[in-house]
Design a protein around this nucleic acid. Structure first.
Length: 289
DNA sequence: CACTTGACCTGTCCGC
DNA sequence: TGCGGACAGGTCAAGT
């Protein structure tokens, strides 16, 4: 699922498509995905205009003119896909092929705008969620209270990065990287890719890392995430952006899901193992314990 | 508190 | 071909 670069790609794409549009209808799967009451939707969502789209960690916020926001987590298989039957993207564009397909079995929420265009929240595994709440209350939810700093902010330094890990000295670096309270937005793909870049074995204890290694990890994590944003994210399975397009970062991946293939740096065979309960990819020569 | 593991769901792939 | 089990981009609630 979407990690920081994928969610950021969706945010940027959606911004140009729905900011300023007015919501005329909302429908959702009652089993899962949109827990708000009918009354709240009627009062704070229907008739509201989209004023902004923001991201914090892997969470998206669609701000409305009612001072309420839709707060959305895509988790593993969530998608936010925009479709406009009146204004197609052009012949052959992946979005156009979705016009007559969505909603489908994975659609949990459908938002319709006054111009007839629609935004679909699809989520095959149903781990994701969408919630309508007052914009000012978003910072109070537990996730926002504990989530760590944004790693791509220009004022986020290597020293701050290293200091965030002090609390997690006795676990391995992969588990700590995935911990959203340490640094925001890192998931399985970019954990593996940045550890490969910094030549750090994922099972190394955090407390054993040197300043030089933390700096390398900081630098590589930012490089890899910035590149992924440029490439529109990574698409292994279900991920697509707001226009229904897949990202191409996987064409550039050096370790993630490359088991059996040569390490681009030394030629050794990339191996797959299990660390912190997650499939983990390493170069056994570049990354040692 | 920090750390690990299982749970939440559905679909797909791989080996027998 | 069919079937069972493992696994998939994330987080949380439990356990130790």
């Amino acid at each position: 699922m979407p990690e920081l670069p994928e969610v950021e790609t969706v945010r940027r794409g959606l911004g140009g498509l729905i900011i300023g549009k007015k919501i005329i209808a909302e429908a959702h799967d009652t089993a899962k995905g949109f827990p708000n009451t009918v009354a709240d939707v009627a009062q704070f969502m229907i008739g509201a205009k989209v004023t902004d789209i923001r991201r914090r960690a892997k969470v998206l916020m669609i701000d409305l003119s009612t001072d309420y926001s839709l707060i959305i987590h895509l988790k593993m298989t969530g998608q936010l896909v925009y479709v406009d039957p009146e204004n197609r993207f052009g012949a052959g564009h992946p979005n156009d092929s979705l016009v007559n397909i969505l909603p489908d079995a994975s659609t949990r929420v459908t938002i319709t705008f006054t111009d007839g265009s629609q935004l679909f929240f699809n989520d095959q595994r149903k781990f994701g969620w969408v919630r309508l709440m007052p914009t000012l209350e978003i910072p109070n939810i537990p996730f926002m209270q504990k989530v760590g700093p944004e790693p791509l902010e220009s004022d986020f330094t290597a020293r701050q990065f290293a200091e965030r890990f002090a609390r997690r000295g006795k676990t391995n670096i992969k588990a700590a990287l995935l911990d959203q309270s340490v640094v925001a937005g890192v998931g399985n793909i970019y954990a593996d890719e940045s550890l490969w870049g910094a030549k750090i074995h994922p099972q190394r204890l955090v407390a054993s890392l040197t300043d030089t290694e933390f700096t390398a990890l900081y630098t590589d994590l930012r490089e890899v995430m910035n590149l992924a944003i440029k490439k529109g994210g990574s698409s292994n399975h279900t991920y697509v952006n707001a226009e229904g397009k897949k990202g191409s970062y996987m064409d550039f991946a050096r370790a993630f899901r490359r088991e059996g293939l040569p390490c681009p740096r030394c030629g050794a065979t990339i191996e797959k193992m299990r660390v912190a309960g997650r499939g983990t990819h390493i170069c056994p020569v570049c990354q040692t314990l």
